[in-house]
Design a protein around this nucleic acid. Structure first.
Lengths: 143, 143
DNA sequence: TTTAATTATATCGCTTACGATATAATTTCT
DNA sequence: AGAAATTATATCGTAAGCGATATAATTAAA
């Protein structure tokens, strides 16, 4: 059954690379005391502080049952605060704490460090950039 | 900080697409009573039955602490059997059961069904095939 | 041939990830 | 206004995924 060979699947490389990337980030994030999904939440909030749970979930394409406990752990780490919106009490506003804001400075170099490491393995920035655009296009189509 | 925008990350689209693919497979696999990682294990065993835990882990780029409980659950589902190798008692041989073998027939159409669905969203097989090759190349480089 | 190192797998603890379901606040409908 | 529907978030249960560590079998070294 040729169509069932692992080698012929498009799904597997995405699954594998996703995990390999998380592994590659891990040592860099460990020194900050955060995980990869927590880093993604920070990326969203650094770009625009003060977003609702749903806004963050939408951007990361995650469900609230994933993001709620994640945000609670980040609250424990004192990276974010969560409080009900005054206008609409169903909404929970998530804000960066001072600590969460400051972490941006330390994190700023991480993406570049990883790109440099990949360049050493003959994976160039232009290739990654092209790939990124292609993938973002597909995500928009299938989301 | 331009380099920290979610939009500019290459890591995020991989993370997102990987989960979107798992979600896309889910309804197809649900009727078989298996999960996406379990499906990947079956792909590996359908290709070559009777492999050790490590051989399967290597092919899926997973650690034994992920694959061992996964295989145990598949044993519960009576999809595979696990028994110590006679030559080397440290090794555990994983074999498909009759049920695990038979499932290949029902699963054979799934990849094609998903490709057809993607074609409807303007994602063509040639593009995916090219992407697959590119990604497999990268995996080999960074693994 | 004991001892030490290596190999193969498993266990533990914690963090995602998500389907199903619950709860409370807000809107919409009648 | 009061009931019904919708929206926003949370809770529960289960399955990954992985670092750290443990255990047993095999191999290498002294």
């Amino acid at each position: 059954m040729e169509q069932l060979k692992l080698e012929n699947q498009i799904c597997f490389p995405f699954y594998a690379i996703s995990r390999l990337i998380t592994r590659a980030y891990q040592p860099h994030l460990e020194s900050l005391g955060i995980t990869y999904p927590q880093f993604l939440v920070l990326l969203v909030l650094w770009e625009k502080d003060g977003q609702t749970v749903n806004q963050i979930a939408d951007k990361l394409i995650l469900n609230t049952n994933t993001i709620t406990p994640l945000l609670k752990r980040m609250e424990q780490l004192e990276l974010v605060s969560r409080e009900k919106s005054k206008e609409d009490e169903r909404k929970v506003m998530v804000n960066l704490t001072r600590k969460g804001q400051k972490m941006q400075v330390e994190a700023a170099c991480i993406p570049d460090e990883l790109l440099t490491k990949l360049a050493g393995k003959d994976i160039q920035r232009e290739d990654l950039s092209e790939m990124k655009n292609q993938l973002n296009h597909w995500i928009a189509l299938i989301k």
